[in-house]
């Protein structure tokens, strides 16, 4: 298939040259003629088939109901599944919206490589946005602290990008089982002008009759993977053979202990302290984010099957490794009020 359909827009760089975003609607469709009768999908167990179908329905709803949707692509496992399902939802048409990666510039290097390869392999349009002001102010996760870094480089950056391209609906891969304020989210999560979430005033959401009506300036966050659990995600990745960032698999990697977490030394910017000497450990990640804020776990799981088996016996949650949620009580809810995904 045509691989040239991929267009990577680095809006941070382009902006510096006074770039005014002019995003073309996907004009290029591609069609695969496949008349063979499927055997594959029937191998999916019914709980995964049901989840997949539900996500497809939500995605089609967005494309039918909004003018200018975008899919937030965070490179992690949930995004990988979301993208995989999205391609199924619109087959044989091409993905009718672009992907948006909000790049804090502190992601693992392997994530960025994987991101660009994925966009290329699937022939999808990818927009990369960096909060340039934040970068110029020198905001970073190590000196600024995780809270400020997250607000400026993730939340504010996301809002900038949504405004810049006038997206009226944005898909996110967040799941309700991740966190207790996420469990309170609607699938179509309404945001008033300024991207504000008011959890006490969410639209009732009955049956599958989503209310997609918006006034000027209002937007929708759409959580197409709401009802998947972490285990569902891995089981689906295993059965559908979806590529994921290699960091999810255990390998010998250089790490240090910092603030009670195992942090991988991904580049020099980590600035090792005198008492820190990197050691090689067999580790992997359950969630991926900015590398100085992502805690690794000790693990021998080198295959997807191992990961699924490990999941069945896990005793701590995937968020435990994230340094950004422990800032303060109810911190996720607070971030969500401010417009975090």
């Amino acid at each position: 298939m045509q691989q040239s359909g991929c267009r990577v827009v680095r809006s941070c760089l382009l902006l510096r040259q006074g770039y005014r975003p002019k995003r073309k609607r996907c004009a290029k469709w591609h069609l695969t003629n496949n008349n063979s009768v499927s055997k594959k999908n029937h191998m999916l167990p019914k709980h995964l088939r049901r989840l997949e179908a539900e996500s497809i329905e939500i995605m089609r709803e967005v494309v039918a109901g909004f003018k200018n949707p975008v899919m937030l692509y965070s490179i992690g496992k949930d995004s990988s599944v979301m993208l995989h399902v999205a391609i199924k939802a619109f087959y044989p048409a091409k993905l009718p919206f672009p992907l948006l990666h909000v790049d804090t510039t502190w992601k693992f290097r392997e994530m960025i490589t994987f991101r660009d390869e994925t966009a290329k392999r699937l022939g999808v349009e990818l927009i990369v946005h960096v909060n340039k002001e934040g970068l110029e102010r020198g905001i970073n996760p190590i000196d600024s602290g995780s809270a400020l870094h997250t607000r400026v480089m993730k939340t504010d950056a996301l809002k900038q990008a949504l405004d810049l391209y006038h997206f009226d609906a944005a898909f996110g891969g967040a799941r309700r089982d991740e966190e207790k304020s996420r469990a309170k989210e609607r699938i179509f999560s309404f945001r008033s002008a300024g991207h504000v979430w008011d959890p006490r005033n969410q639209r009732p959401e009955l049956w599958n009759l989503f209310n997609t009506q918006l006034l000027q300036g209002e937007t929708m966050r759409v959580f197409a993977m709401s009802n998947w659990t972490e285990l569902d995600i891995w089981e689906y990745i295993m059965l559908e053979k979806i590529p994921v960032v290699p960091l999810y698999f255990a390998k010998q990697r250089p790490v240090v202990r910092r603030s009670g977490a195992t942090i991988m030394v991904d580049d020099k910017r980590l600035r090792l302290q005198s008492n820190e000497t990197p050691e090689m450990r067999m580790i992997r990640f359950r969630t991926l984010g900015c590398y100085p804020l992502s805690g690794a776990i000790d693990s021998d799981a080198t295959t997807i099957e191992d990961i699924v088996a490990e999941m069945h016996t896990a005793t701590v949650s995937e968020r435990q490794g994230r340094l950004i949620d422990t800032d303060e009580a109810a911190s996720m809810e607070k971030k969500k009020w401010e417009g975090y995904f």
């Binding site: 496949n34 008349n35 009768v37 594959k40 999908n41 539900e54 199924k88 939802a89 044989p92």
Partner: peptide
């Protein structure tokens, strides 16, 4: 035809997208 990316289906049941 009943089209999916995984191939055409002979039949679609309640819940199938």
């Amino acid at each position: 035809r009943i089209v999916t990316q995984d191939g055409n289906l002979p039949r679609a049941d309640a819940g199938d997208a």
